[in-house]
Each structure stands twice: as C-alpha cells, then as structure tokens.
Design a binder for these strands. Structure first.
Length: 289
DNA sequence: AAGATGCACAACCGCATTGTG
DNA sequence: ACACAATGCGGTTGTGCATCT
C-alpha cells in the first residue's frame, strides 16, 4: 500500500519556530479556527507542514496552556496516573488542565522516572526492583487490568469532550455528539453507586482513581489522596460547575442509556472498590528540585 | 576562559487509529 | 468492505542553556 507522506517536504522549514511564524499561526487560527491542519500552512502562508503546525499549536501556542514548573500535586498526580495508565501521556494530560502530553512526557522522562529509579522503584511497574519471591508475578491482577482499561477509556472520553469545550472562536466541531460507552457507564448507576458510597468524599463525582485510593483493601496506601482535578480543588463550586458543564450535556444526550450495564454493575463496582493503589509517595516530600 | 558534559524542552518521525468516499 | 486521507499519539532526537572541570 505504502504510506503517503504527511506533506511535501520540499521547501518546508523544519526546526524551532520563530516569533513571526508563531504570530502568523496564532492570527490565522484566531481568525479561521483550525479546520484542516494539512491545508492550514498553505492558507496561512507558513512554510511548515500541517503536522508541525498542529504540534506547535497544541504544545505551545494554545491559549489555555499553563506555563511554569509542575507543582508537587501535579507531580503526584502524574505518578499516580502513570501507575494506572502507563505511558498514555494524552490520557494523563487530560487530567491536568493546561498541561500537554508532551510536557508530561518530558517531566516523566527527565524527573519522575529518575526519582523512582533512585528509590529503587521500577518506573514501568512502580514496584520495588527487588521483589522477593514474586519476581515473575505480573503486577496487575485481571481485575486491576480491567479497572485500568475502564478508567483509561473514561479518561479518553472526557478528554475528547474537554477539547470540544475549551476553545475560543468556535473552531470546527471536534466532538461529534454521540454515545461513548465508557463515559455513559461512568455516568450510569455504576459510577453513581461508586460516587455515592463514600460519605466523606469531597465531591460527588470524583474519579475512581482517588476513591479507590482511599478504599483499598490492602491498606497500604501511604496517605496520599489525589484529587483528579487539582486545579479545581481551590473552590469546590468551581469544580462542580466545571464538571457539570461536561457531564450535563452527556446526561441529556444519553438519557436513553439505561440497562446496558445492568448485568455487570455489581462486578464493575466491586472492581472499582478493589482497585489497589499502593504506591508509596512519601518520597515526593523530600523533593529537591 | 574554554571545552566537555548534562539537562530540559521543543520538535520531528513514524505507527496507530479514525474518518470518509 | 475497502482504500486512502487526516489526525492523534508516543518514542526519539536535536538544540540551547547551565554547570562542571
């Protein structure tokens, strides 16, 4: 079959972007949105391939990008999410508003991975390297893997929705309304049961990651409670509002969803409750960076 | 002061996935 | 159902700056 190149490489500039190029790209997107990345450079008068423009925009020029160093909370969250999702940087980034997958990937590769290594933890599994007696035992049980799949799919669904809601200038529709099984499941009785079960929970719609952290059976959680929406933690009303903005339209459009998950509700809920997050995060406290 | 080395981050490459005719 | 185009994503590389020797 062969693969067509993403662009004609002749006469295309590569390497670092200059301020003029940034300005052209920003102005073009402000004015026209970003319908087709492939045709954008030509229309905007840039000698770059569309892929390069997309990357520059999503990783650097986007107005909602948060600059500056990661906070301790953000680092904790990245580690915790990485333990569940692995190198799925986009899914992790979806839980850190204003942070890009590239940024998180760099953070991991330059800081967090080394920090885990220094502490004798395998950055891949988040387990100690010397694991007497069970070196060949897979880290995750089937239930854990199921949970991780479930959660990552939900994160992706939320990420897609968030992208569609965040941008100014009403760009072309990024999110086509339609059923997303996992998000619907999260908003269904399974998720609801889960959200309601902890009376002391800070909000009523937190991720199963954090909830599972506080309800794990193995009891080895080292006191780290992760709020999956750390930037909203400052004001709970903001948090609720922001989340509702995402969830309300979904609830509305998913009103027909009722019994699809019924038969597996108990199992799924149990999996949520059983999901262990037992990484010791105490090392973050002596962060020297 | 100058070269070597390490680090952080932006950008690129290529495969995977999704959309469309 | 298929082929192809478009886009997303993760791994890797390149570059500039800071620190060390």
């Amino acid at each position: 079959m062969g693969r067509t190149p993403c662009c004609d490489k002749k006469d295309l500039k590569k390497g670092p972007w200059g301020p003029e190029e940034d300005e052209i790209l920003i102005n073009y997107i402000k004015e026209h949105g970003y319908g087709s990345w492939r045709s954008l450079p030509k229309l905007a008068g840039l000698r770059r391939c569309g892929k390069s423009c997309r990357l520059r925009w999503t990783n650097y020029l986007r107005p909602d990008i948060k600059r500056g160093p990661f906070t301790v909370d953000e680092e904790k969250l990245v580690i915790q999410l990485h333990a569940i999702l692995g190198n799925r940087w986009a899914a992790i980034a979806a839980q850190l508003p204003g942070r890009t997958d590239n940024e998180i990937k760099n953070l991991w590769n330059t800081h967090l991975k080394k920090r885990l290594l220094c502490l004798g933890l395998d950055p891949l599994t988040h387990e100690p390297f010397a694991h007497c007696g069970s070196t060949t035992t897979p880290r995750s049980s089937p239930a854990t893997r199921h949970m991780a799949q479930w959660e990552s799919a939900r994160l992706e669904a939320e990420a897609r929705l968030s992208k569609g809601l965040l941008f100014f200038n009403s760009p072309p529709p990024l999110v086509k309304p339609g059923p997303d099984y996992f998000l619907r499941l999260w908003n269904s009785e399974v998720g609801e049961s889960f959200r309601n079960m902890n009376g002391e929970a800070k909000t009523d719609c937190r991720s199963p990651i954090s909830q599972a952290s506080s309800s794990t059976k193995c009891g080895s959680v080292s006191g780290v409670t992760i709020d999956v929406y750390p930037n909203m933690a400052g004001s709970s009303s903001t948090s609720t509002t922001a989340r509702n903005q995402i969830e309300d339209p979904i609830d509305a459009s998913f009103s027909s969803f009722s019994n699809e998950s019924e038969d597996s509700s108990d199992t799924a809920l149990q999996l949520l409750l059983d999901f262990p997050i037992n990484n010791d995060m105490s090392f973050l406290e002596d962060d020297t960076t």
